[in-house]
């Protein structure tokens, strides 16, 4: 059973690494600020399991609450014209 667990754990580590790489590359490549913020969302999603895997659940809660707040503060400066 431990062999299977190690294989799945490697799969999850690889998947989250792929998420971080995709998110970072998209954040660099996109030009529109809204699309940059969506791509940053992918990167934060890839980072979260690495924090939880080491048992730092309090840090995970803090990151999960701070990341959307920083996105909202960033959105304040890229608002589009008048509604």
């Amino acid at each position: 059973m431990s062999g299977g667990w190690i294989a799945v754990n490697d799969l999850i580590v690889g998947a989250c690494g792929v998420l971080i790489v995709i998110g970072t590359m998209l954040t660099i490549k996109e030009a529109d600020p809204f699309r940059k913020l969506i791509s940053l969302g992918i990167m934060i999603g890839g980072v979260m399991p690495f924090i939880v895997d080491r048992g730092l659940l309090d840090v995970a809660i803090a990151v999960a609450l701070i990341a959307p707040l920083s996105t909202i503060f960033t959105l304040m400066i890229c608002r589009r014209g008048e509604p």
Binding site: F34, L37, I38, G41, G45, A64, L65, A67, P68, T71, I72, L75, C78, R79, R80, G81, E82, P83
Partner: peptide
Amino acid sequence: GSTLESNAIASTYVG
């Protein structure tokens, strides 16, 4: 948090 982020991005994008 992720839902709130999507909500804010969509709402700001349209006005």
